[in-house]
Amino acid sequence: MRHIISLLLENESGALSRVAGLFSARGYNIESLTVAPTEDATLSRMTIVTTGSDDVIEQITKQLNKLVDVVKVVDLSEGEHIERELMLVKVRASGKDREEMKRMADIFRGRIIDVTDKSYTIELTGTGQKLDAFLDALEDGAVLETVRTGASGIGRGERILKV
């Protein structure tokens, strides 16, 4: 099963490598991992998307909690949550395809943020599935380059992750 795990960790050098090291040392999957500082400069917020059986996910959360630099861990997938990912995609956009590409970006609520004679760079946010769907909808060979951030997640409603 796919799980999206959120953690708050001390903003210390090396904290990221402790988390990454844990996943590789214990053979856990990482689908994506994102991390950035929070409004509290002493804390970073990390979102990890992983897959595993219930037993494995239980071990992952326990092992993460055990890391001294980790302040809090929640498995967002245990409750209602929102998940977003940002993608920048550079696509071929010349001749008759140019209009069509603009239309596709609009349908997916993407924004064209850079333009050349032959290409568009489109910014798109959404769930991973939506980003996949956008790429699938493009014609073969249309995509020149993609870069995705991996998912960030947050609990729905009043649920907050705070120290």
């Binding site: 037993d55 239980e58 071990q59 326990k62 092992q63 909690n65 055990k66």
Partner: peptide, 11 residues
């Protein structure tokens, strides 16, 4: 004392 020792190899 270590939660990660529990249900690691055995339910």
């Amino acid at each position: 004392v270590d939660p990660s020792s529990i249900s690691k190899r055995v339910r």
